[in-house]
Design a protein around this nucleic acid. Structure first.
Lengths: 340, 340
DNA sequence: ATTTAGCACTCAAGGTTTTAGAGTGCTAAC
DNA sequence: GTTAGCACTCTAAAACCTTGAGTGCTAAAT
């Protein structure tokens, strides 16, 4: 479909444009090392490339700029594996060699490194472990009519939920309730929790007084309430550094969607295994039509745990970014697997 | 110092400028209802006002714009108590009438309401309770060499910290340790915790094996590690809607400081009781030299708990904003006091 | 049949000029 | 003390130039 020479030209245009953000003219291309033909020839090739939609003009007599189709081709066929500089590698190294036993921190640090290294905005979806089981549940009475339930999972994740308690329930009653729950729920996978709580455990509790049932219903509600997503972002202001985002309107709408954590989380969650690149219009969200989102996943044994992503302009340093994401997602995977 | 008439003129200028963000001319002022003198007269008064620094020109023949000194005078002397619309009140009302027993949520909702109501950026510093005491401490072993400690305070605040455990320590040993800790630390005010842990408790533990001491030192470290600040922001993109922030540079630097949660938290923490208005250069942070920051505090009985704040352009709807902050900080105070 | 030099043509970006209008300061009359 | 009148100033927007980069096409060169 594309001749060898056309590909060569396309490569130069994209490489150059990624660096400069300026349209590339035939003369500039001809000056490149590995180009051995004249501007006129290149102009012909460029006309062809434009006809087949890989590059565009910004106006009739401007140089050429890669189109989204061009970037897509680049990502799919042209991208050379990028060798990260020693400096970059050692920055990543340092991040992970520090003793960290808390995944919140690991993830936060990663987000930070990711945005620092790339000058784009990093987004990390924290680990959601579905295979985990309940390790312990505890209830602590706070006042006459409120208490807090604390759950610990087998992966060491701790969560707490507040709930109402009928005044008649005494501390001893709560203890009894906790015992029943621990008895029945420890070791149950988190995803089965709902089922168990509505079925078996509810039945058992019917034997007890109505306060037990009421308390339990409050607790159930609190526990099954969907937990807030854990989304970490780094370098949010980096987007503004990009020349293509010198328009406040764009920035505004982009930031608006980034504030909607649920939407972002969903976006990352449904991104599938491995590295995925969404260029411009390929993105579902309107505000991201000028952006590229690159996602990578990290996992625990076989189960996908979470996603790390970078958001930048379509003119992105694809090969470098992909390498960095690769390294980082591997590191995260390794880290998490070393724990469990 | 200022004549009655000058004050009148100043008031019109500020009121008008707050609405329109446009320089106000003498003719426009003369047209106002309660102004009964001619543009020429007003021009004279304006010349005086400018001389004493309350207003400024953007160029030689422009209308006038309030200076920071002008705003300061306005805030100190001219601001009329603002009667919130029923609609606004009912929005606030609705936020607080929903059953909420978790202060994270209350604060988050408040931040949201605050920014929605004002179209500025809201910043809330979550409650930091120093008077609280430790209610319970629990340790759950996670793996051979890690465990998590869970603390609950008398206010129901739950926190957890991960720490390393020497492999030799058995679950039963950990239990013993927890018992000792609970025995000695329950009821101790959080601010005394450090002292107690280094003093008395450390001594007691010397009697036990060296693993106990090692474990304890890890735990101590984890527990006393400064906890991350709880800072909630709402409507971060609102700033971009303001015409005075149509400059990317400004937005960029403003967002950069807002990302530094520690600095922001400190700023709010040291803001003193009651409502405080910082106009333009009065702000310490360079990036906020064009902003006004209004802070209000909420408290539990006498102790200041936290701060709620609004960040916007110096051209702010002062009276409305102050009213809203007043209402909201009272509501928060009420809410928290109803719990404890 | 390709490739390339040459040349006319196009357009954005940036500078200059013009014009219109809003607003001022001052003076002199009220 | 207040106000009408007027000359003056300055911005913002429009209109107009100029420059240079870059193109597409044609015709000559390979």
């Amino acid at each position: 479909m594309l001749t060898e020479r056309q590909i060569q030209v396309l490569q130069v245009i994209i490489d150059e444009f990624i660096q400069t953000a300026q349209p590339i003219g035939s003369r500039a291309i001809a000056k490149k090392e590995d180009i051995s033909f004249s501007p006129a020839t290149i102009r012909n090739e460029m006309a062809d490339l434009e006809e087949s939609g890989f590059i565009e003009k910004t106006h009739t007599s401007s140089g050429r700029v890669p189109s989204e189709k061009g970037y897509r081709f680049y990502v799919d066929h042209l991208m050379s594996p990028f060798r990260l500089s020693n400096q970059d590698m050692s920055i990543i190294q340092k991040t992970f060699e520090r003793e960290m036993i808390e995944f919140e921190k690991v993830v936060q640090k990663s987000a930070r490194v990711l945005s620092d290294l790339t000058n784009y905005t990093s987004i990390i979806l924290g680990p959601e472990v579905f295979e985990t089981t309940l390790k312990q549940i505890q209830i602590i009475s706070l006042s006459e009519h409120t208490a807090v339930a604390i759950l610990v999972t087998s992966t060491g994740h701790v969560e707490h939920r507040y709930f109402n308690v009928p005044t008649i329930m005494h501390t001893s009653d709560l203890e009894k309730l906790v015992n029943i729950l621990n008895d029945r729920l420890i070791g149950v996978p988190i995803i089965r929790l709902q089922q168990k709580m509505y079925g078996e455990v509810a039945q058992i509790l019917q034997r007890y007084s109505s306060e037990f049932e009421t308390t339990y219903s409050y607790l159930k509600e609190a526990l099954l309430e969907k937990q807030p997503v854990k989304l970490y972002m780094g370098g949010k202001t980096n987007i503004m550094l990009q020349p293509e985002f010198h328009d406040i309107q764009k920035i505004q709408s982009l930031y608006s969607v980034m504030e909607k954590e649920d939407e972002m989380a969903n976006l990352l969650r449904t991104s599938g295994k491995g590295i995925k690149v969404s260029i411009g219009q390929e993105n579902e969200l309107d505000a991201m039509q000028d952006c590229t989102l690159i996602t990578a996943t990290y996992s625990l044994s076989d189960e996908q745990l979470g996603t790390i992503a970078l958001l930048g302009p379509t003119r992105m340093e694809y090969s470098r970014v992909v390498s960095i994401l690769n390294v980082l997602s591997n590191r995260l995977t390794k880290k998490f697997n070393s724990w469990y």
